[in-house]
């Protein structure tokens, strides 16, 4: 780095003019979707059918975003407050049954805090399991 270089204004002209004919670096975001890489940590999803109710996730969550409630014989409902979640993925890491998964769905902005409270329903009781209409999970966030 020599200290006495010839200084002049308007040094950026060549690269500016090149930009003029280049494709813009920005995208028309809401119209052009942005896809995050596969391992991105965003909205957590709980597959409650495997949950054993050990509450390791509840104990380990840094922000107290997850709640596990028993709703019947060995059936558990999971509630995640996406407004509190810091998306660290600690819950997925400590879960012994790997029931929690972090998806790459990052577009979670909401106008109402209430819509950020997502409930993952417990699996249907064994007797009702034959009923095909009761889905194993419901995404209330949508």
């Amino acid at each position: 780095m020599a200290r006495t270089l010839w200084r002049r204004p308007g040094r950026m002209v060549p690269s500016l003019l090149r930009s003029l004919f280049r494709h813009p670096a920005t995208t028309r975001y809401p119209f052009v979707k942005w896809v995050m890489p596969a391992d991105f940590r965003a909205r957590p999803v709980v597959h409650t059918e495997n949950c054993i109710g050990c509450k390791m996730c509840v104990r380990n969550c840094p922000s107290g975003a997850i709640e596990i409630e028993p709703v019947g014989e060995k059936r558990f409902e999971a509630r995640i407050d996406l407004g509190r979640c810091v998306y660290c993925g600690r819950c997925a890491e400590v879960c012994p049954k790997k029931t929690i998964e972090l998806t790459k769905d990052f577009e979670l902005a909401a106008l109402d805090r209430k819509t950020l409270k997502v409930v993952y329903d417990a699996p249907p009781p064994p007797a009702a399991a034959a009923n095909p209409e009761a889905g194993p999970e419901r995404d209330a966030g949508g």
Binding site: L5, R7, R8, P9, G10, R11, M12
Partner: peptide, 14 residues
């Protein structure tokens, strides 16, 4: 490298 060159030679920056 481009920014270093720019910082060293662009008059208004200096």
């Amino acid at each position: 490298k481009y920014y270093i060159e720019l910082a060293m030679t662009e008059e208004t920056l200096a």
